[in-house]
């Protein structure tokens, strides 16, 4: 869900404050990059972390 947090922050950017002055509409920020996880199931049977063991 971190990705959505990034989007939330992006949506609050004031179009007039963008570095290059390009007008970013709310439609581009909100509608076009919608990615809401509505199902996130992992069925696993180990409590080990492989990356931590490397």
């Amino acid at each position: 869900m971190d990705y959505n947090k990034e989007l939330d922050r992006e949506e609050k950017v004031d179009p007039e404050e963008t570095p290059d002055g390009e007008e970013i509409t709310e439609e581009i920020c909100q509608g076009d990059r919608k990615f809401d996880l509505v199902l996130d199931i992992l069925c696993v049977h180990s409590d080990k972390d492989l990356r931590a063991g490397l």
Binding site: F35, C43, V44
Partner: peptide, 30 residues
């Protein structure tokens, strides 16, 4: 519609199968 089932089986002491099921609502549909 989605679902899953995982069973250890009749002889094994551990279940070495793993699975993931993820779904996102996007601007292009689910």
């Amino acid at each position: 519609i989605q679902s899953f089932c995982s069973d250890i089986g009749s002889k094994r002491k551990t279940n070495q199968d793993s699975l993931a099921l993820l779904k996102a609502e996007t601007a292009y549909g689910d």
